[in-house]
Design a protein around this nucleic acid. Structure first.
Lengths: 89, 89
DNA sequence: ATCAAACATTTAAAAGTTTGAATGTTTTTG
DNA sequence: CAAAAACATTCAAACTTTTAAATGTTTGAT
């Protein structure tokens, strides 16, 4: 089943920095790693780590554009997760 | 905002045992800690710990009935979480 | 070609989580 | 009341996650 996805996706959300990244992606549409560094005050390697967790979970899409990493929400997977939780009720 | 709830709830879900407890609660309607022990093979203290995380998160209701702990899903909070995630998209 | 900017990787320390053994509490049963 | 059943708590070991310093890679500007 999709339980591995649910586990990885909820784990990706379950952190204050990563949750704030998701919310900011939702508000702004897209962000770069540098944007996230400025927004969180975290070190660059730490941001890189959090971004990797988010992209590995499938909740965030990453696309290299020149030397920038262009991050966007993966709406389909967020909706899939939302639907899974709703189906439990 | 509700971000602390989202953090705690997703954290509660983000574990294979706790996710399976939620899914079994969804299927069966209710469980006791002993049911969960049998179902997971985990030790009693470990089950107690996972149950506490689930109830502290607000996703699961616990009610003492004699010496048993009667666990049920908190559907409202699951729907709240589902709605939050859906609103990000 | 040089330099700088953006991001990734490696590594190690600090902090947090998971697990079960031992023990404690409460409730039911004989 | 004694014993057992169900759950909670304390504790310590094993494991995982988070963080940043150091370093590496790639891309763009001069």
């Amino acid at each position: 089943m999709e339980t591995r996805f649910v586990e990885k996706a909820t784990n990706a959300i379950a952190d204050k920095y990563r949750l704030s990244i998701l919310m900011e992606l939702s508000r702004k549409g897209s962000l770069t790693s540098t944007d996230i560094q400025e927004m969180t005050g975290l070190s660059q390697p730490c941001v890189s780590h959090h971004v990797k967790l988010l992209t590995d979970s499938g909740l965030v899409n990453a696309q290299k554009e020149g030397r920038n990493l262009h991050l966007t929400l993966n709406k389909e997977s967020l909706q899939q997760l939302s639907g899974f939780l709703n189906n439990l009720t």
